[in-house]
Simulated assay, not measured.
Amino acid sequence: MANLSKANLLDKDIRKLPIQNKRYIKAVGNPKELYIFVYPSGNKTFMLKFNEKYTKINAFRENLYSVAEARRDAIKILKELESGKDINTIMGKDEKYLYKNLFNTYIKQKLKNGISQSYIA
């Protein structure tokens, strides 16, 4: 029961959210980490808050992507995070271009070309 929220928005509630001059955040609820960002352009995007950072799940689109689907996806992501997976892996972000992976690739290339271990250290 730790992941329950007092807020529990439905599709009709999200449709009624007013557009303002600045982006604002509203808790969707169940799980408590699920939020919706409402932008001045009128876009409404579901976000998952994990480790004080927000990760985009998908945009709210009437009859295409609903609150129920966002909840299902959020719960699936949270279960994978609890099992020890990395958020970038779960969200399908290309880890090839993370700094640590680029660095490791660079070092492997240098080792192939005959650079000494003492130089790398």
Rank of each mutant, 00 (worst) to 15 (best):
M1H: 00
A2P: 04
N3S: 12
N3C: 01
L4S: 04
S5I: 01
K6N: 09
A7D: 08
A7C: 10
L9N: 05
L9H: 06
L9A: 07
D11G: 05
K12T: 14
K12Q: 07
K12F: 15
D13E: 14
I14S: 06
I14L: 09
K16G: 13
L17E: 13
P18N: 03
P18R: 03
I19Q: 01
I19A: 03
N21H: 12
K22A: 06
R23L: 10
Y24K: 15
I25K: 15
K26Y: 11
V28Q: 03
V28K: 00
G29T: 11
P31T: 12
P31Q: 15
E33W: 00
L34V: 07
L34F: 11
Y35E: 06
I36V: 14
F37Q: 15
F37A: 10
Y39H: 15
Y39R: 14
P40A: 00
P40S: 00
P40E: 08
S41L: 09
G42Q: 11
K44G: 07
K44Y: 12
T45F: 00
F46P: 03
L48H: 13
F50P: 03
F50L: 13
N51E: 13
N51M: 07
E52Y: 15
K53M: 09
K53I: 12
K53W: 00
T55S: 10
T55L: 06
K56P: 11
I57T: 03
N58F: 11
N58W: 08
A59M: 05
F60Y: 07
F60A: 08
F60E: 03
R61C: 15
R61H: 02
E62S: 09
E62R: 11
N63Y: 12
L64K: 10
L64S: 06
Y65N: 11
S66D: 01
S66T: 08
V67Y: 01
A68T: 14
E69G: 03
E69T: 09
E69V: 00
A70K: 10
R71A: 02
R72W: 01
D73V: 14
D73F: 09
D73I: 15
D73N: 01
A74H: 01
I77L: 05
I77D: 04
I77P: 02
L78N: 12
K79L: 04
K79T: 02
K79C: 05
K79W: 01
K79P: 02
E82Y: 01
E82S: 11
G84D: 03
G84E: 02
K85P: 02
K85H: 10
K85V: 01
T89S: 05
T89Q: 03
I90K: 00
M91E: 08
M91H: 12
M91Y: 05
G92P: 01
K93F: 05
K93V: 08
K96L: 01
Y97F: 10
Y97H: 08
Y97S: 01
Y99G: 06
Y99V: 08
F103P: 07
T105E: 07
Y106E: 05
I107C: 08
I107L: 05
K108F: 11
K108N: 10
Q109P: 04
K110F: 11
K110Q: 13
K112P: 04
K112I: 11
N113L: 14
G114F: 08
S116C: 07
S116N: 12
S118M: 12
S118K: 09
Y119N: 03
Y119D: 03
Y119S: 08
I120H: 12
A121P: 02
